[in-house]
Write a protein that binds this DNA or RNA. Structure first.
Lengths: 218, 218
DNA sequence: GAATTGATTGAATAGACATTCAATGAGTGT
DNA sequence: ACACTCATTGAATGTCTATTCAATCAATTC
């Protein structure tokens, strides 16, 4: 019953397109039914493809899940990399860009958050998942620390440690994400964003421009 | 082959003891194999009991999982409730007690954290899990906000909102937990504890005694 | 000490799953 | 047209699970 009738889309497609199609379906299914509920039957049905295709384009289910996580990690990384790589921005502005990426609607929505925490919570494959996300997380934290160091020097701040601020930020990112996912009525994306900026305003009070961007909450 | 031979423990035991025994085994198994890997066979083997007992003492697997989460939530709550209920402690001290509970070795260890995030990540039952933990989370956050309000009044702080600090703390708690779970080499319990206190020192600078307790890291 | 109650056992059942694979289909080059 | 490659299909297979339940066992009551 797959696509045949729905579209003029060709029965066959380049592998890269199919892989992406399956990854998208996997994200959707994980967000709805969790990793245990993510059966290959459900994924292929969501994608409008047949069961056997997963084992053709990915070796097996574990690979599909790993590739899905990799995709999310890259998507997130690309968002802040664009700005932190520029040379014409001040450290504080780059820091703001990383925070904006963290709470960007394309990343920080209930669907994607559900998938992130599904991976975090899956003890069984924690090691392989960690290997995937660790590189990117470490990279971001080191860049944050670097930027904090620059801000501290600029502002002549004392009694505050760049690495500590970066680690605290990292904790705030993940924790606020979790709160948004678990209690969407009480925690919104916009409020979380503002709270991180408030923390930075506390840490670096002489860099006044930590105000939140004008955006509707949620 | 169960216990019969291992101990002089009687074959039969009061239901409450068996329930606790099964919950303990469930915590152990979830921490090792995640929720998908938590089969009744694995749980009963870990407990040294027979397969059918789970369906006798709990109605089914879902109930066992829900009761396990309830147990963890209560265990955590009891730890800070003891101190926040007292009338002879200053607000700042009570705030410290809540933070100490959050990073108490009995709560904040890799085994229990793995279980917490296994539940958080399980989309399928998120609603029932949330119903269990929401009450306790809301309660803690409201008490935190209340205490912050008292601290703000004591210290005459301006430009800082108690509810915001409480929400930021809540985020920090969860995020630092996740970091400890995922990257135990880079994030330790002690460092997390100190970071939360550093945040409070930033927010409430005139309450000087936010120093960390003397304890070895990890 | 028989009878009764409640706890415990594990084999049996039925359903769901990932993975395999033989068959089919569509493009591509000749 | 033809052969050939690659993508796609879905039925079949074997494994693993939760749940049921009849049988067994220990403790308690009468």
């Amino acid at each position: 019953m797959p696509r045949h009738l729905t579209e003029n889309s060709p029965r066959t497609a380049p592998p890269e397109a199919r892989r992406r199609q399956l990854i998208d379906a996997t994200v959707t299914v994980i967000s709805r039914h969790g990793i245990p509920g993510t059966t290959l039957t459900a994924v292929t049905r969501e994608a409008g493809l047949s069961l056997g295709l997963v084992n053709f384009h990915f070796r097996n289910k574990d690979t599909l899940l790993a590739e899905t996580l990799k995709f999310l990690a890259q998507e997130h990384r690309a968002l802040w990399m664009r700005k932190t790589a520029r040379t014409d921005l001040a450290p504080a502005e780059k820091l703001r860009a990383i925070i904006e990426a963290q709470f960007h609607p394309r990343i920080c929505n209930r669907k994607k958050l559900a998938v992130w925490f599904a991976f975090f919570g899956d003890t069984t494959h924690r090691k392989s998942y960690r290997d995937i996300s660790a590189g990117i997380d470490v990279e971001r934290q080191e860049i944050c620390a670097e930027l904090c160091r620059a801000v501290i020097q600029e502002g002549g701040y004392h009694g505050i440690c760049a690495e500590d601020v970066a680690a605290t930020l990292e904790g705030l990112f993940d924790g606020l994400w979790l709160n948004i996912l678990m209690y969407p009525d009480r925690f919104t994306r916009g409020a979380a964003h503002r709270r991180v900026l408030s923390y930075l305003a506390l840490a670096f009070p002489r860099h006044g421009a930590w105000s939140a961007p004008a955006e509707a909450a949620q």
